[in-house]
Simulated assay, not measured.
Amino acid sequence: MESRPLRYFVAVAEELNFTRAAERLGISAPPLSRAISKLEAELGVALFERSTHNVALTPPGAVLLQEARIALDALQAAGRRARRAAGPEPKLVLALKADAGASLLDDILARYSTDPAARPVAVHLCEWGEQPQLLRQGEVDVALVHEPFDHTGLDAETVATEPRIAAIPAGHPLAERDQLRVADLGIPTGELRRYLDPAAARRRPTGLAQLLTLVELGELIQLLPESVTARYPRPGVAYRSVVDAPAAVLAIAWPQQSRSQATAALVRAATALRTGA
């Protein structure tokens, strides 16, 4: 299967409209329609249900959309990694949020340096939620990232777990209590996930400083890893234990298609911390 029909298919699947997809691709609608029909004939399945006014994905189409995105990302990533490997001193690029995993970095790199497959490591600092896409795009080779995150096209192993702490405005009535439960925070069970990922907070802060400022202003309450709260005391923020909050899980993630011995060595070094090996 070639990449062009896959790109055409993804455009139609995302737009659910052949005219808009054709405009996005810079081609006309008739050849796009023919390309999709040819792809369906080659696969032997219908990818779309078409009517006069509607285009919808079939179940096989939904499966192909997920796999095609991974495949196209992998193709682009391969080119980026090849260009990086052509540098005078190829390095393994590790992405992490400065306040999420940095405290373990020295220990991980010390263990990694003893592995025969180790290469020099360049650290890429990023914001919340950027690591998975950087991995899929080939910008980085491996990442330290807190769960939950989008695992599409990625493998991951747990590095460390720790309690989550509630960050609440210092003047809030809950700040008078030493321990809280999730129910005390007024977080609906179905919405708990977004409180575990600061990037998904309703005001979408771009960094921890902005998020904590919003907490101080009474704009939100957030669940954060204990190690993060220990490093960032704020006079306007009260940190309180939440006895039934799910643990914060720090993972090391890498592309599923990676066959890099250096990447595997770094994963071994990181997971060795968890096992105490």
Results as ranks from 00 to 15, higher is better:
Met1Tyr: 13
Ser3Tyr: 15
Phe9Met: 02
Val12Leu: 07
Val12Glu: 10
Glu15Ile: 06
Asn17Gly: 06
Phe18Glu: 02
Thr19Trp: 13
Arg20Ile: 06
Ala21Val: 06
Leu25Val: 09
Pro30Val: 03
Leu32Trp: 06
Arg34Lys: 10
Ile36Met: 06
Leu43Ala: 11
Leu43Ser: 09
Ala46Trp: 14
Glu49Gly: 07
Ser51Gln: 10
Ala56Glu: 13
Thr58Trp: 03
Ala62Gln: 15
Leu64Thr: 11
Glu67Met: 08
Ala68Gln: 12
Ala68Cys: 11
Ile70Asn: 15
Leu72Asn: 11
Arg83Ala: 15
Arg84Gln: 15
Arg84Thr: 13
Arg84Cys: 14
Ala85Gln: 12
Ala86Asn: 15
Gly87Phe: 14
Gly87Pro: 14
Leu92Lys: 14
Leu92Thr: 13
Lys97Tyr: 14
Asp106Val: 14
Arg111Ile: 14
Tyr112Asn: 08
Pro116Ser: 13
Ala122Pro: 12
Val123Glu: 09
Leu125Ser: 15
Leu125Val: 08
Cys126Gln: 09
Cys126Asp: 10
Glu127Arg: 13
Trp128Phe: 04
Gly129Val: 00
Gly129Tyr: 01
Leu134Phe: 14
Gln137Asp: 15
Glu139Ser: 15
Val145Gly: 03
Pro148Asp: 04
Pro148Cys: 01
Phe149His: 01
Asp150Phe: 02
Leu154Cys: 00
Asp155His: 12
Asp155Arg: 05
Glu157Met: 01
Thr158Asn: 06
Thr158Gln: 08
Thr158Gly: 01
Thr158Asp: 05
Val159Pro: 09
Glu162Trp: 00
Arg164His: 01
Gly171Asn: 05
Ala175Thr: 07
Glu176Gly: 15
Asp178Glu: 12
Arg181Lys: 10
Asp184Asn: 09
Ile187Trp: 00
Ala199Leu: 03
Arg203Val: 02
Arg204Ala: 12
Pro205Phe: 01
Thr206Ser: 13
Gly207Met: 12
Ala209Cys: 07
Leu212Val: 02
Thr213Trp: 11
Leu217Ala: 03
Gly218Leu: 03
Gly218Tyr: 03
Arg231Cys: 04
Arg231Gly: 10
Arg234Gly: 01
Val237Thr: 01
Ala238Val: 01
Arg240Met: 02
Pro246Phe: 05
Ala247Tyr: 11
Ala247Thr: 12
Ile252Arg: 05
Ile252Asn: 05
Gln261Gly: 13
Thr271Gln: 01
Leu273Tyr: 04
Gly276Lys: 07
Ala277Ser: 13
Ala277His: 15
